[in-house]
């Protein structure tokens, strides 16, 4: 079908609760399924971000060098970027680490609290930024949908509005 809207979702530093909430829109998923093409998401098996996407929902704050590179690339290939949930918008719970130096956090997580293999992460884990940053402080964001997580119906209404070519009228509620 030629007129399907290309949608992507991306998971940065968050708990995936926003994605759960996204799935929680239940029956509406079926209604919109034939109108969208989910081209990139933790929910689908596509490892490369496509050339141009109509709408990307981003969950989570920008926490690592990897996150930052990812979101900068995604912004370049997305028409509309929607910050989904408090982590993307404020940093939220993950940002509670922002008050401490990265080294102290790694020490706590990988050494003090580790039962076995006590050592700091190496090549596999991307380097953490000194602080988690809200997505819009790294790249421009078009729509904000706060909540922890944003309730399913709110995501549903926003998506339906966007699919109808309208900007959603979101009543923001943190937490």
């Amino acid at each position: 079908m030629p007129n399907k809207v290309k949608v992507a979702t991306v998971w940065l530093d968050g708990c995936s609760g926003c994605h759960m909430s996204f799935l929680d829109i239940d029956g509406v998923l079926l209604d919109i399924a034939d109108r969208i093409d989910l081209v990139y998401s933790p929910l689908v098996d596509n490892k490369v971000f496509p050339d141009m996407v109509d709408l990307t929902l981003v969950e989570g704050g920008v926490s690592s060098v990897d996150d930052r590179a990812k979101i900068i690339k995604i912004r370049k290939h997305t028409k509309l970027l929607l910050s989904l949930g408090d982590c993307a918008i404020t940093g939220n719970v993950p940002a509670m680490r922002n008050r401490y130096p990265v080294a102290a956090i790694e020490e706590r997580a990988y050494i003090e609290n580790a039962d076995v293999n006590q050592h700091a992460p190496n090549l596999i884990v991307p380097e953490l930024l000194p602080q988690i940053q809200p997505v819009h402080t790294v790249v421009p964001v078009d729509i904000y949908l706060p909540g922890c997580p944003p309730p399913g119906p709110v995501i549903r209404d926003a998506l339906v509005a966007l699919l109808n070519g309208e900007m959603p009228n979101i009543s923001p509620r943190f937490g």
Binding site: N98, I170, P172
Partner: peptide, 12 residues
């Protein structure tokens, strides 16, 4: 209708 802020989070 505050859905985000452009101000700088101070994380005190």
């Amino acid at each position: 209708g505050v859905d985000h802020t452009r101000l700088n989070y101070m994380f005190p």
